[in-house]
Nucleic acid binder design. Structure first.
Length: 214
DNA sequence: ATCCCGAGGG
DNA sequence: CCCTCTGGAT
């Protein structure tokens, strides 16, 4: 796409966020998958607060699939979208039993077929639970990729493929997390802190705040 | 008011 | 493509 210096980009983010890892507390791939479904439009802190209780009572697919839906709703209530999420995590647990012997698959196509699991969730699980390189295109990655001129698309899938072309595979997973942290504390949606941005010089975002004096 | 590591349905 | 689902933090 645009000729942003990828090496500079990776170096800068690595320097700022050296050891990125998911903040979602979990002990198994199943728990990470469930926590990630719950994380839609919700902070990780909030998710961890409810999964603490959720996993204590329903630690694995067999137990969660057999759980009472209303009980699940009560526990996950504060993560928002609780009707959909409760239905999805229960159905997902059941699907894991039916199709995968209770194990979480590491295959993207199989993951995406699970209830409540979209491409973003699938890629989180692939990278965080299985160590597979994956670009996770969430709202932050979508926005920042556009602003940095790494893609011209607004379609998450196309953005994912655009990034895969220009980013070395070894950096895929870390870069996704780094963009997310970077999006939270510098390049947020409404008022990006361009005056504090380490990538200001390579950014092509037309709306960026120019602190130049001339 | 606006945002948080979205997904499913029409 | 759009809409809807939703509580909590700031």
């Amino acid at each position: 796409m645009k000729n942003v210096d990828i090496q500079f980009l990776l170096r800068t983010l690595k320097n700022r966020y050296p050891d990125v890892k998911t903040q979602l507390v979990h002990q198994t791939p199943f728990q990470l998958l469930t926590a990630t479904i719950l994380s839609a439009q919700c902070t990780d802190r909030q998710v961890n607060q409810v999964t603490r209780h959720l996993f204590a009572r329903f630690p694995d697919p067999a137990v969660l699939a057999a759980a009472n839906l209303t009980d699940i709703k009560k526990i996950i209530y504060s993560t928002g979208f609780y009707n959909n999420k409760a239905k999805n995590i229960k159905a997902c647990a059941q699907a894991l039993l039916d199709r995968h012997d209770g194990q979480v698959p590491d295959d993207l196509d199989l993951l995406v077929k699970l209830p409540g699991v979209g491409r973003k969730t699938a890629n989180v699980v692939r990278s965080a639970a299985f160590g597979h390189p994956a670009i996770v295109v969430d709202t932050h990655v979508l926005r920042i990729s556009g602003r940095l001129g790494l893609t011209r698309s607004r379609d998450p899938v196309k953005v994912e493929f655009d990034l895969m072309k220009i980013i070395p595979k070894s950096a895929w997973s870390d870069l996704s997390l780094q963009f997310i942290y970077f999006g939270r504390d510098i390049c947020d949606a409404r008022k990006p802190k361009c005056d504090q941005c380490p990538l200001f010089d390579v950014c092509v975002f037309p709306g960026k705040k120019n602190t130049d004096t001339k």
